[in-house]
Design a binder for these strands. Structure first.
Lengths: 222, 222
DNA sequence: AAATCCAAGATTTTCGAAAATCCGTATTGC
DNA sequence: GCAATACGGATTTTCGAAAATCTTGGATTT
């Protein structure tokens, strides 16, 4: 793995995790020290991330972490529903045994990690990885590289918004996300496309609403 | 404009125009001579293009022009119809006077250039620019940055396939594309979403079918 | 007092060479 | 004879410094 690829992975992780804050300028000297490499691999990584809209850049003024906004979050949510509904329908039409096995397997792995909780940083990351794997497994039989690419893009984007939610407020009742995942998997395996798509859309809309109510006070305070 | 941006524009144009052939390796030394600049700005541009799937890369083996295939062409066509249908419906719901004026204006400019023909290279490029502007104008009131981004990505992709079609075979009757554009604009301005989306889908499917019949002999020969 | 201009420092961008890696070829060993 | 390997040239990748540009602060002018 080249340094430029390491730089890409590290920067992407730090941006998605919110360790590099939205809007923050990314100075070459700082990044060079932080990731212990020269400018060249960093600039290559930043250019890739710019194409993915995770960073912005202005000529001769450098790069910044792409900002977040509630409008953009809703846009991503709605577009996600459009893309994934289509992909899910295609998968339900075309998916075979291997596809079904993937859903069952990734759901099981997700459940195990969810039961384990997210006490440590590693556990939280593992949950995120398995969550992604499950949602990808649902769609992977759609046979469309473009739908899968757009799914990936929007998944990463939504991860940026979801991150603050992973540390749930003390008093609030935790929403049973895993039950939603299970119902979604069941409808999908039963090849009930209408139900599965409805559950998927609900799943994302609820997450978005939760996020909005969670961020509203933050935005008001900041 | 920085050299890296110039490199990005030049490479993108040459790839989309087919001047750099699908699958061809992109050697740094050659590119450096061709575009008269050092490696750094070229590598930055190539990394951006890689993120947009216009070039592929393998670590330590360098970059290549991304390949084309009929499967991928159909995938892009179908995904385009999904994305643009949604964007068109949203635009028809939400678009105001400015949006309508944009459609009428860009359609008129497109017609003028189409009447002028595509004898010279410059005319062909001008037609392509106005064609893009018209299709963008139809969707621009959708209010979704993500839909617009995906539209752009798929437009560029389809441009790569469309390019060989711009030099029409001598004997063949030219399809009246501009009539389709006019009908599409009329249905859109009449706020008839169902008809407009149907025309849009037909427009793209016909282009794809035309391309398939045009490329089949090429693929068989090569 | 407000606006403009200039210089110094900070920052980004680009280059040219060094380092690391790959590929084809010929040689060695069995 | 054939596989494995070591060598040399070609290529990519990375670094460190130079060039170009921006920003900041104060001095100067209106």
């Amino acid at each position: 793995m080249t340094l430029a690829e390491k730089a890409y992975d590290s920067l992407r992780r730090d941006i998605v995790a919110g360790h590099l804050k939205p809007g923050a300028p990314l100075r070459m000297a700082q990044l060079s020290e932080r990731y212990d490499m020269g400018f060249s691999p960093l600039r290559e990584a930043l250019n890739r991330l710019q194409a993915e809209r995770l960073v912005t850049s202005v000529a001769l003024k450098g790069f910044s972490v792409a900002p977040l906004s509630m409008d953009e979050m809703w846009d991503a949510t709605n577009t996600r529903i459009l893309i994934e509904s289509r992909a899910l329908r295609l998968s339900i039409e075309q998916g075979g045994d291997e596809w079904e096995a993937g859903i069952v397997g990734t759901l099981h792995a997700l459940m195990l990690q969810a039961a384990r909780g997210t006490a440590s940083e590693d556990d939280a990351r593992a949950l995120e990885v398995r969550h992604h794997a499950f949602h990808k497994a649902l769609l992977v039989a759609c046979g469309s590289g473009w739908l899968m690419e757009f799914f990936q893009r929007l998944y990463v984007e939504s991860e940026r918004y979801r991150h603050p939610m992973l540390a749930p407020r003390p008093g609030e009742p935790a929403r049973d996300v895993q039950a939603e995942h299970e119902a979604l998997a069941r409808a999908t395996l039963a090849r009930d496309a209408d139900l599965a798509c409805a559950l998927l859309a609900d799943h994302y809309r609820r997450t978005a609403q939760r996020l909005e109510s969670l961020m509203a006070p933050v935005a008001a305070a900041g």
